[in-house]
Design a protein around this nucleic acid. Structure first.
Length: 141
DNA sequence: GCCAACGTTGGC
DNA sequence: GCCAACGTTGGC
């Protein structure tokens, strides 16, 4: 494992779990439960404590609203009865001063290869450092 | 509310 | 192990 921080993007429908709820968990954070996809699982297994992830509101809003940090690495998800999947734990770090919408990301050819556009259904995805910086910049950070 | 994309399941 | 049917996700 290298010491470099990796970047990710996690999606949530705000009706199910919103940024505000995430913030309400404070420094304690919360388990990122409910992921039932093997590719997403693989991404979570690759996460290290201190890695950062964009928090994206799918369906409603369709925008990156904030940044979360991994505080606990991959471990069993108590909500998964099959025992096949797991979760990480994250805490809210900061809200983007300006949310970055999917529309905006799609409109910029720079993001043509980002998983958010290419594989829109993947709920946990990696983000390259270049894309990370560019979205932070657009978000007003 | 619709539909396309994609993952999963189950019959063979 | 293949593939059709089905369910779910998520953008529009």
């Amino acid at each position: 494992m290298s010491g470099a921080t990796n970047f990710w993007l996690v999606k949530s429908e705000p009706d199910a779990w919103s940024w505000d709820q995430m913030v309400a968990c404070g420094a304690e954070g919360t388990g990122w439960t409910g992921v039932r996809n093997h590719l997403a699982k693989k991404q979570m297994q690759a996460m290290a404590i201190g890695d950062q992830a964009f928090f994206y509101h799918s369906n409603v809003g369709k925008e990156v609203v904030g940044i979360v940090e991994v505080i606990k690495t991959f471990h069993p998800d108590p909500t998964d009865e099959s025992g096949r999947f797991g979760m990480v734990a994250v805490r809210a770090v900061k809200k983007l001063p300006r949310p970055v919408s999917l529309e905006e990301i799609k409109a910029d050819p720079f993001f043509a290869e980002i998983a958010l556009v290419k594989n829109s259904r993947l709920s946990v995805q990696p983000v390259s450092p270049e894309h990370w910086l560019a979205i932070c910049k657009r978000g007003g950070l």
